[in-house]
């Protein structure tokens, strides 16, 4: 039990009459990389938003890092150690890379409440370190995000997760809008995280990517988890069958 990082029990979210997420039971172990797949509207992002405290769940329980948790907001989740790259990149276009990385948790030289003096040097150094750690290459740190390509922006968002000591990283469709080379860059970052033993939940539509990168695949369909399979126990056709509903019923992970 102690090696379980994240566990949800009957996690449910209704938006009025829309049952976006229904009784999701999910587990993630230390060092594990799990993919979440499913059609558009299957409830993947909804699942992410409940775990990260962006929204309040309708029902169900969440355990994180050995404790039952009820995050009031994304900040609490982050403070507990969940770093998330949201589907709609949470970046500020007019700020440079270090400012984006440290947005909302700036390093401070003198604490003067809201007028605290920023420690720009320290943030810049930490940014460089994070970029090295994730192998993200951005030649000019002090340029605003606005002038960067989609891939670079995504890399900045991902580097942000690596800037702070985290116990779980969640990425919601990090490569959906990227070209081939930019996708390769992001995948390299994910491999680096795997080498470092950092657990990850990867929401993705890209079958090749998922089979390349993760240990386990969880399929969502119409708000429910319909499959939970180890990579070596399944293949692309099988997964597609679950995504489209051709194959139904709870596919349980066989005991190792």
């Amino acid at each position: 039990m102690s090696d379980i990082v994240l566990k949800t029990e009957n996690l449910t979210k209704h938006y009025g009459g829309v049952h976006a997420l229904q009784e999701a039971n999910f587990e993630l172990r230390k060092g594990e990389h799990v993919a979440i797949m499913g059609d558009n509207g299957a409830g993947k992002s909804t699942f992410v938003r409940q775990i990260t405290g962006v929204e309040q769940r309708t029902d169900g329980k969440i355990w994180f890092d050995g404790k039952e948790v009820n995050f009031a907001g994304p900040i609490e989740a982050r403070e507990a150690g969940i770093e998330t790259v949201f589907q709609n990149l949470a970046l500020a276009d007019d700020l440079d890379v270090p400012s984006n990385l440290f947005l909302g948790r700036e390093k401070v030289l003198f604490n003067l409440g809201p007028f605290s003096i920023l420690d720009r040097k320290a943030m810049r150094k930490a940014t460089e370190a994070a970029l090295v750690r994730t192998a993200v290459k951005i030649p000019n740190l002090s340029s605003t995000i606005r002038h960067m390509s989609g891939g670079q922006r995504q890399c900045v968002a991902i580097a942000r997760t690596a800037t702070f000591a985290s116990k779980l990283i969640i990425m919601d469709e990090p490569t959906a809008a990227l070209g081939v080379q930019e996708t390769a860059q992001v995948e390299n970052i994910i491999r680096t995280l795997k080498e470092n033993g950092e657990p990850l939940i990867l929401v993705s539509h890209n079958m090749r990517q998922v089979f390349d990168l993760v240990d386990r695949i969880v399929v969502f369909r119409r708000g429910r988890i319909v499959a939970n399979l180890r990579k070596q126990d399944t293949d692309g056709n099988d997964i597609v069958a679950y995504i489209t509903g051709a194959k139904t019923g709870q596919a349980e992970l066989q005991a190792a």
Binding site: L91, L95, S99, F115
Partner: peptide
Amino acid sequence: YTKYGKHCYAIGSNEDAA
């Protein structure tokens, strides 16, 4: 140079992100 200033730019730039 302050948090306040940084947050002004962040909110005006992308309130959701902020």
